[in-house]
């Protein structure tokens, strides 16, 4: 186990506080954007971009993904691929023309 010294600890604390502040700011931006009552496609895009930025901060720094080994990324890439398939399933239902008459 690599122990942290007082100096390292201060560095870590500063980093975690910065990430915390960034998360608070991004949360405030998300809420503020929702009060603009934008059209749904624009609102969804903005909300998802901010949520993805916040999620990346949490995963990178709190979950230490930024310093993680390659094998973890291998598992995560596979997860992302299957997650995207799940997200596109609703779209695939729109494209599904089996059983319909050809126009």
């Amino acid at each position: 186990m690599v122990d942290l010294h007082a100096g390292d600890m201060r560095h870590h604390v500063r980093l975690y506080v910065r990430v915390f502040v960034a998360l608070l700011v991004l949360t405030a931006v998300t809420v503020a954007a929702s009060y603009l009552h934008l059209a749904v496609p624009i609102a969804v895009t903005i909300a998802l971009i901010i949520a993805a930025a916040k999620g990346s901060l949490v995963a990178s720094f709190f979950m230490h993904l930024i310093t993680e080994r390659r094998v973890v990324f291998g598992a995560l890439v596979l997860t992302v691929v299957f997650f995207l398939v799940l997200m596109f399933l609703p779209l695939f239902t729109q494209w599904d023309t089996i059983g319909q008459k050809v126009q």
């Binding site: 949360t27 998300t30 809420v31 954007a33 929702s34 749904v40 609102a43 969804v44 909300a47 998802l48 901010i50 949520a51 916040k54 999620g55 949490v58 995963a59 709190f62 979950m63 230490h64």
Partner: peptide, 25 residues
């Protein structure tokens, strides 16, 4: 504790997406 933390942060991460999707859109 690191492992418990990774799980706890994931729970936080899920909420980060649930909040805008359910409450704001």
């Amino acid at each position: 504790i690191e492992i418990a933390g990774v799980y706890w942060h994931f729970v936080d991460l899920v909420w980060i997406f649930l909040f805008p999707i359910l409450y704001l859109l």
